[in-house]
Simulated assay, not measured.
Amino acid sequence: MGASESHEKLQSQQPQPQSQHVQHQQPQPQLHEPTRRRESSLLPPDQGNTKASKDRTKAVVDNNATMMPVKSLKGLPIPHNYEHILKSNADSPVDKSLLDKLYAGVFLDHKTKKYWVEKKSNGNCFMLYARALSITWAENPNYWKWVQHKEESGSMIELAKLKMVCWLEVNGKFGTGMLSPGILYQVSFIVMLKDSAQGWELPINVRLVLPGGKKQQHKENLMEKSRESWIEILVGEFVASEKDVGEMEISMYEHEGGMWKTGLVIEGVAIKPKN
């Protein structure tokens, strides 16, 4: 099969932008959907099972460690909602060594997320890795490839590596009740552009929709970004509040220009206090 014939075959498989009046006839893009969990927490489906919850806690905490109530973490107040995030009972004593690990980070939901505490603000931080996001065409090997990546800590995570798409769409959701109230947060996509990246002449769109429907949206020109290094694409900022708790939506997309894009690697979405 020649190069032009292969290119035409891929184009026929992937939906192209159409005018608004025929949009209802457009084929539905294939999505990689993350495992859906209850919006109010990061708890697994068996959260109501007391025995299962205790078993998970024992797996994390050293059985030989002295269990004790902790009122502070290295002189700071305990992080907001940390027991709930770590899937332990709110009234259960937690080993202090486990709290210390929060500065380094704790994986959640089968390494699709990470939770850590920033020392400066004592604020909760989260990373939603690529597997926790909905990426159009991500499970089609013609367009995306899932690759293993070793973090600085030595732990392995999965990255989404773009091979070729004209329809770029990445979405994520997160419950703001896990964030520390009163702290100014920034939400960013963490991505890398390879030297071979092409098709980014048109700016991409990034959007943050907060609980209640307030939107922050702008365009980013990836042609101006550095190559072969991780970069943060700021999506939006907001102050976490206990009075306005709900699910926020994070998006990155470009599918109006019809240009074939290559060479993008997605690590995930970072949600952390603004420095």
Rank of each mutant, 00 (worst) to 15 (best):
S229N: 09
K71N: 14
Q25G: 00
V170T: 03
L31M: 06
K215L: 07
L43M: 10
T66I: 11
N124H: 11
P141Q: 07
V187D: 10
A59H: 08
I231H: 04
T35S: 05
P29K: 00
R37S: 07
K150Q: 09
A132C: 00
H218A: 06
V61P: 00
I233M: 12
V22R: 12
H24P: 00
S92F: 06
A138Q: 02
L222C: 09
G105I: 05
K163Y: 07
E39F: 03
H7A: 15
P45L: 06
Q14R: 12
K87R: 14
P273M: 14
A240E: 12
V170A: 03
N275I: 11
L264N: 03
S155D: 15
W200I: 08
L193N: 07
M164I: 14
K145I: 00
C125M: 08
M1L: 14
N63C: 03
S40V: 09
S155I: 00
R227W: 03
K173P: 00
A90V: 07
E118C: 08
M223S: 13
I266C: 01
Q198G: 04
L76T: 08
I135D: 02
F107N: 05
V70W: 02
L162M: 15
V187K: 02
G154W: 04
M178S: 13
V239D: 04
S121K: 13
E158K: 02
G258D: 15
Q13T: 07
E152W: 01
M259N: 15
L99H: 09
S180H: 12
V265Q: 04
H218Q: 10
I78S: 07
S6Q: 15
Q216L: 11
I78C: 13
E118Q: 14
L168H: 03
E5F: 11
S180L: 04
Y82H: 09
F107A: 07
T112S: 13
A59K: 12
A132K: 01
R131C: 06
H255I: 03
L193D: 11
N221Y: 06
P69F: 10
V245F: 02
N64H: 06
V191F: 02
V61G: 06
D46T: 01
K120T: 15
I78V: 15
N140I: 07
N49L: 03
Q16T: 12
K120H: 12
A132D: 12
Q11H: 14
L222F: 13
V106Q: 14
Y253H: 05
K173S: 07
P44Y: 04
D195K: 05
H84C: 09
G177M: 11
K272T: 11
S88G: 10
H218R: 05
S88D: 08
I266Q: 02
S241F: 06
P15L: 10
I271T: 04
A240W: 06
L86K: 05
Q30F: 03
G257H: 06
D62W: 00
D100L: 09
I271V: 10
V106D: 09
S12Y: 08
K101Y: 03
V209I: 11
E220H: 08
K113T: 01
G177F: 04
I233R: 04
S12F: 10
L86Y: 01
K194C: 08
G212H: 01
G199K: 04
R37H: 10
G172D: 03
L10G: 02
L184P: 07
S226M: 10
W200Q: 12
A130K: 02
P203I: 05
I231K: 04
T35M: 05
H149V: 00
M223L: 14
S88N: 07
A104W: 01
